[in-house]
Design a protein around this nucleic acid. Sequence first.
DNA 1: GCCAACGTTGGC
DNA 2: GCCAACGTTGGC
Length: 156
Amino acid sequence: MSARRRYWLMKTEPDTFSIDDLERVRTEPWNGVRNYQARNFMRDGMQVGDGVLFYHSNTDVPGIVGTATVASKAYPDESQFDAKSDYFDPKSTREEPRWFLVDVAFDRKLSRTIPLDEIKQHAGKLGEDFALVRRGNRLSVLPVSAAQWKYLLSLE
DNA sequence: GCCAACGTTGGC
DNA sequence: GCCAACGTTGGC
């Protein structure tokens, strides 16, 4: 018996890794997350098959641009052990890795970007606790309820 | 490029 | 364990 499918939103800067990049490679290890709360969502919350809203940040029109699927259980982020990587963490060890990731698989590109400013206009329907529209929230991986998932995609 | 809002680090 | 300094995120 499998647990109910969960939903998430994952941010990425399109200059670094975009929805087009994911479409090309199909599956990508979501490396480089160096925030404990975001790590915990990946390590403790995600299951294979969960839905992901793919979000572009730090760009002209930030917003949701596609959907993806969690394609693996959490496992240690190899880049934390690589001294040449931007994501190297000298305090992490293989015995006790600090950072985990999941593989993310391409699902589809939306027919249009659902912009952040439009999402904000629906904050009431989404709930004031929705982390994406809470002021000052910088979490790059955050949970989305089934109702929020459905509502956000209905804006497409 | 600016800067508010955080999160992390390290001295004490 | 406090908290100032510093670094990062991400909208604008």
